[in-house]
Amino acid sequence: MDDYDTALVLSRVLTSGVVMSIEKSDRELPGLERSLTRASGRRHACLVNSRSAAIHAALTGLGIGHGDATGGAGLGPPERSFLAWLGVTADDDVPPPFALLTHADDLSDVDAVALVVDLTGLGFGPAAAFLTDDAGAHARAERLKIFGSYDLRTMWTQEESGAEVVPGVQFNYRLSPLVAACARLALTKGARS
């Protein structure tokens, strides 16, 4: 993406006045979610603020937590360290339960049930997504990045709901709309070229 495009999209979002991820009127995060679900053919996208957060979201979505074991074949040292920090044992002989990809990969040509897509290389700061067809996995992943039993748009005002997806530890893994807007345009331009 050239500098003019970046300048244009940043100016557009700043002019809208909506730069918070939990703003009801934000359109940038849903926009990037749509771009990624279209590109991957997956139904759901959970946007987060780093590659490690996306791995955490994928594992949580798949129901893998502290004390569990999972596949770790092919994972690099940072990912293996992160799994160990989560208390998840990585088996070197078994592939991980998610495909670890970047924005440069063809997301439509991946067979895995869960995709972790690192968008950091687009150049707008750490950003990533967990993509899946499984609504339950998506709901569990979303709950990891927000606080309490709420969704992204109603964290402040909504009463606790969906307690069947019991929140455990929760992080603010939320992606910023400005970053999402730039990432979306870059992905779109990349796809066109």
């Binding site: 893998i64 937590g65 502290h66 004390g67 569990d68 989560l86 208390g87 309490g148 039993s149 606790e160 307690a163 019991v166 929140p167 455990g168 530890v169 929760q170």
Partner: peptide
């Protein structure tokens, strides 16, 4: 008294 601290699932399995 919020759910994460009444259920205490933490990182999983109560950690």
């Amino acid at each position: 008294c919020h759910l994460p601290f009444t259920h205490r699932a933490g990182f999983g399995n109560g950690h």
